[in-house]
Amino acid sequence: MTAVPSTAPAVVAVCLKWTPSPFDGGPLGPDEGDDRFAGVSPADRAALELALQLSDAIGASVTAIAAGPSAADRVLRDAVAAGATRAVRLDMAAGSDSRDVAFELAQVVADACVVLCGDYSLDRGSGAVPAFVAHHRRCAQALGLVSVDVTASASSVAGAPDGELTIHAVRRLDGGRREVLAVPTPCVLSVEGSVASLRRAPLRRALAARSAPVEVIATPPAHHHGAPAIVTPYRPRARTMPAPAGEDVLGRLRALTDAGTSGGRGETVELAPREAAARIVDTLRGWGYLD
């Protein structure tokens, strides 16, 4: 992990997943240059708002980054109108491979103490980019946050001996449980859409942002940078199921659906991180989630 040198001005980065129009407008429908129905998800807007709040609290600047064609400039200019200080567009086709996007993002956010992302995009991708960015940055990650305590996070700087920022946040777990986190920086966070609602841009800023510069970074063709294995959506493999055992129809139905049996195949184990990860992978493979 590399700490941000305390002399450099702090940067909060927010990654906005630009998604082209999902709307089928017929034979004359929108092309890739049409930005009317394109945009970012509510979760990404929440991430931007959180980035702005955090930067206000700790005196940082905000860099907004999107990947896409020039039509994506609009969401970046909207971010500048709302208060972002720098806008960067990675010039790549919409729908580029998550690993390539994450690799390029990681270069741009290299100086950021906090990288914020929405936890889902308008096209409901795999949500893997934040994790990949954290992987490239070799930094902490906390994904799917339901709240971030900006005040507590900002005041953590004063309490820490070396002035390090710690993010205080809450993450959603299965079964309605919550996990309270203190995330060391630098870190990558992804947030749900409900954590904050994006402020209206002031009129004068909205006017000025129309001509705000957007830094365009040319990206090399796709080449999956040393990425971890691809995570595919869950496709259970076919397997032979024995006929359910049971006295009557209801009994067989219960046997088939596990209804009425005590909940949870889950188990709690305490292991070192490396062993724990291996155990999770083994278990997932056993359940048919991984090939």
Binding site: R199, R200, A201, P202, L203, R204, R205, A206
Partner: peptide
């Protein structure tokens, strides 16, 4: 206008 700082 309904934007903050919205008078023109």
């Amino acid at each position: 206008t309904d934007r903050p700082d919205g008078d023109l």
